[in-house]
């Protein structure tokens, strides 16, 4: 793909064919995000249970498979409490702001060769741009809830997200450099079916940096500082009740899927795989990464805030820059 070929897709002159694809895609994505978040919550609790040698959810449905649905019903049924002294509008805007952009981030992800919603030349850019919304939501939530713990959580969230976006971007950029494209579909197609043909073989450092930053961006342990419950009670969502909290929860899991999908597309060959390529490979890889994320969460203690920033500015950023330089030099040669 040549960047010079790129023209902005004008929504008013789209063909009916594309419109249908968009509508169907969005609906499917909504279903997909909802279903996957539900499954992920269940999987997470099962993983936690097995790691801690207990059964995890067990009572609702066979093997507790309906537990998340029961929890969701409970959350929806709960009273929404707006704390005294808070900015009610912003307070309830925050979870929505956190949750909605996630849909947009799903649009350019190539699930399969023909299974995608939008094929954009700047797919990577689109995802990264909308990922920035997440931090806005955390900031709003923490600030508007008139809670000191929330405020500290929000401050942490901003410092963390802003910091970690840079090495993340640089790591992604290295891959885009080597493919000369920001189109996820093109990047996937240029990789082969076998692991040694994937980008992770040529860019292991970029993958490592990307994964660490992705953990930090999604506020997952060991980088879950904005909501560090042993320090800040629950950080930015201390004051949220019912579905307000539920939406943050949902957004967290949706974000996890996004970052893992992107990692799959960029580094792990996307839907390409041995034997027959297809969406199942994609999902398999995404779920593999998600499991690793969960595994890490239930193994490690939380890092301290200054150490978190030190790791970013003193290690990841220089490494990512060096990696990018090396990639550029190698490409030139």
């Amino acid at each position: 793909m040549n960047i010079s070929n790129w023209t902005a897709p004008d929504p008013f002159v789209t063909t009916p064919d594309m419109l249908i694809r968009l509508v169907v895609g969005l609906l499917a994505l909504a279903a997909f995000v909802g279903a996957n978040a539900t499954i992920l919550v269940y999987v997470e609790r099962k993983v936690a249970g097995f790691i801690q040698r207990r059964p995890g959810p067990f009572e609702v449905g066979p093997q507790g498979i309906l537990q998340t649905i029961a929890d969701a019903a409970k959350l929806i049924g709960k009273q929404l409490v707006t704390p005294r002294g808070s900015d009610g509008f912003l307070f309830w805007l925050a979870p929505i702001v956190g949750f909605l952009p996630v849909f947009v981030m799903f649009l350019p992800i190539p699930w399969g060769e023909s299974t995608y919603v939008v094929q954009s030349d700047v797919g990577v850019l689109l995802i990264l741009a909308f990922a920035g919304f997440g931090v806005l939501s955390l900031c709003l939530a923490g600030w508007a809830s008139a809670s000191k713990w929330g405020l500290i959580g929000a401050a942490r969230a901003v410092a963390q997200s802003v910091g970690y976006e840079i090495p993340l971007l640089l790591a992604v950029l290295a891959v885009c450099f080597s493919h000369g494209s920001m189109d996820l579909m093109a990047i996937v197609k240029e990789q082969g079916g076998w692991p040694w043909q994937w980008n992770v073989a040529t860019q292991p450092l970029a993958f490592f940096i990307y994964f660490v930053c992705a953990l930090a961006e999604t506020n997952r342990a060991p980088f879950d500082l904005p909501e560090a419950e042993s320090e800040l009670t629950a950080g930015f969502h201390t004051e949220y009740s019912g579905m307000g909290f539920g939406l943050f929860f949902l957004a967290e899991y949706a974000n996890m899927i996004v970052v893992c999908s992107m990692a799959t597309a960029l580094f792990l060959g996307g839907f390409q795989g041995p034997a027959a390529p297809g969406p199942w490979w994609f999902l398999l890889k995404v779920y593999g990464l998600l499991l690793v994320m969960m595994w890490m969460r239930w193994t490690y203690p939380r890092v301290r805030f200054d150490q978190l920033l030190n790791l970013n500015w003193k290690w990841l950023l220089p490494l990512a820059t060096l990696n990018l330089l090396a990639t550029a030099v190698a490409l030139k040669l």
């Binding site: 936690a48 790691i51 801690q52 040698r53 207990r54 342990a221 060991p222 879950d224 560090a228 042993s230 239930w298 193994t299 490690y300 203690p301 939380r302």
Partner: peptide, 16 residues
């Protein structure tokens, strides 16, 4: 203590 530091699993092993 590990719970304070954000690790959830050790307490379960200790309880075992």
């Amino acid at each position: 203590y590990l719970l304070d530091l954000g690790a959830f699993t050790p307490i379960m092993y200790a309880f075992d």
